[in-house]
Amino acid sequence: MIIDPQLALVTAIIALAIISPGPDFAVTVRNSLAQGRRAGLATAAGIAAGVSVHIGYTVMGLGYLMSQAIWMLELIRYLGAGYLIWLGITALLSQRPAHGGATSTDESVSIAHWTMAKQGFLCNALNPKTALFFVALFTQVADAEAGPNQQLLLGLVIALGHLLWFSAVAMLLTTAGAQKRLSRIETGLNRIIGVAMIGLGTRLALAD
């Protein structure tokens, strides 16, 4: 069986980009541990939906424009940095998770899950590294002759990859065994995640 070298290269780049720890991973871990499996899965769905923003401007040809208009990437960088810092602060200030509480209503749970999905969406959509990844992938690596339909298909594959990977992360973190072990260090772990998100946001804001 002959494997297309170009396809293999693109697949490897996409896989490495998705699984590399970053803001998406941090927010998935935080929400999964704080609110439970469904919240983690909602976050994963939000992250995958956030990829649609990058798909949209790539298909419309704005990826090249963004690579030339540095101020657009700078704007995304500062918005993303501010959002990460805000998430980190809320993680540090949050109380003990109540995802197992009996008093939660269906409505409040739905609102919480929708909030988790929005966090995942904004985290990905405002991530300048994801924007740069799409620009580089479609202008330097992927077939330059690929039309909008091919670009859209590749973008959907990337979105699906995000959904599957971060759903797997949420599932693994919320197994009975993992929950039992992590419950002992829950407060400290939540603080570590909060500090990590603030650190990521600060590093992003100060990066050249």
Rank of each mutant, 00 (worst) to 15 (best):
8 A>L: 15
13 I>G: 01
14 I>C: 10
18 I>S: 00
22 G>A: 11
22 G>T: 14
24 D>S: 13
24 D>A: 12
25 F>T: 13
26 A>Y: 08
26 A>I: 04
26 A>G: 06
31 N>K: 04
31 N>E: 11
37 R>D: 06
38 R>Y: 00
41 L>W: 05
43 T>N: 08
47 I>Q: 09
58 T>S: 10
58 T>F: 10
64 Y>F: 12
64 Y>M: 15
69 A>P: 09
72 M>I: 15
73 L>H: 08
74 E>Q: 14
75 L>W: 11
84 L>D: 00
86 W>Q: 02
88 G>R: 06
92 L>H: 07
95 Q>S: 10
97 P>D: 08
99 H>P: 07
101 G>D: 14
101 G>S: 15
101 G>Y: 03
102 A>K: 09
103 T>V: 05
104 S>D: 08
105 T>I: 09
105 T>W: 08
111 I>W: 10
116 M>H: 11
117 A>I: 00
118 K>Q: 06
125 A>Q: 04
127 N>E: 04
128 P>Y: 09
128 P>F: 06
137 L>G: 00
137 L>K: 02
145 E>P: 01
147 G>I: 06
152 L>I: 06
155 G>E: 05
157 V>W: 10
160 L>W: 12
161 G>H: 08
163 L>W: 14
163 L>P: 01
167 S>M: 06
168 A>T: 09
169 V>S: 04
170 A>D: 04
173 L>E: 04
175 T>N: 00
184 R>K: 03
185 I>Y: 15
191 R>K: 10
191 R>H: 11
191 R>L: 02
197 M>H: 04
197 M>F: 04
203 R>N: 06
204 L>T: 14
207 A>I: 05
